[in-house]
């Protein structure tokens, strides 16, 4: 116990640094995937068949394969297959590759949620907008968007909480997020070796973060309850 108290500051410092990386990936993914998902959703709903088919195939591929393999492909393929490592070897390149993989992956999941949200809006809303002389664009932004958001908040909450934990997958391309930081003390790092407890500490970080996210999204859901 004494030993743990002695090691605690070192471990927490390392975990904090790792968690910062986790949070960075979390926010970058969210900010990138939320709008990209909308673009993909429109692609899959397009009346122009080749576009909607192509979009659906891409969604199928992305959702049908593990994110872990997508990470490996994005990071290693350019160097292995095209003999041109576009990412470099440092942390920045790994983070960029991880961000791109996560954004594309999550955008595909988001797009399906958006699609459901948009298609569930009664057709009368669009017709009412049309007879009032609105353009399709105005109808989307002024009438449908908020109704869609209200509909997608609960399923999106699930995805976002999954994202909190999925960020740990990025360690497959050696992105040093919090699990990586915790595991380092098993093999020996900064004079601490064979320690399992730092990894369990890491679980608390996830727990607190996902709790926070749950509360915030719950608040948003409540806020949108002013209409039905």
């Amino acid at each position: 116990m004494e030993l743990i108290m002695e090691q605690l500051p070192i471990v927490l410092h390392a975990l904090n640094i790792g968690f910062l990386q986790t949070l960075k990936l979390f926010f970058v993914t969210l900010i990138g995937a939320a709008p990209l998902g909308l673009v993909i959703a429109f692609g899959s709903m397009s009346r122009f068949k080749p576009l909607s088919w192509l979009t659906k195939i891409i969604i199928w591929i992305i959702r049908g394969t593990p994110l872990m393999i997508q990470l490996l492909i994005v990071y290693y393929f350019p160097g292995l297959v095209f003999k041109n490592n576009i990412w470099g070897s440092g942390e920045a390149g790994r983070f960029l590759a991880a961000s791109i993989s996560f954004i594309i992956n999550y955008a595909c999941y988001f797009s399906e949620i958006y699609r459901g949200g948009i298609q569930n809006i009664p057709v009368g809303q669009e017709e009412a907008g049309l007879v009032l002389g609105m353009t399709k664009r105005q109808i989307f932004f002024k009438v449908k968007l908020l109704q869609m958001i209200k509909r997608v908040v609960p399923p999106m909450s699930n995805e976002i909480i999954t994202l909190v934990k999925d960020t740990s997958l990025a360690r497959i391309i050696a992105l040093q997020e919090i699990i990586w930081a915790g595991q380092a003390f098993m093999k020996g790092s900064q004079g601490i070796s064979g320690a399992i407890w730092p990894l369990f500490c890491a679980a608390f970080y996830y727990l607190i973060w996902s709790g926070l996210v749950t509360v915030l999204l719950g608040k948003l859901e409540k806020k949108l309850n002013y209409f039905r």
Partner: peptide, 11 residues
């Protein structure tokens, strides 16, 4: 046009 189901904008 006034619709059977009103189609007011709920928000």
């Amino acid at each position: 046009l006034v619709f059977q189901s009103f189609n007011l904008f709920p928000q």
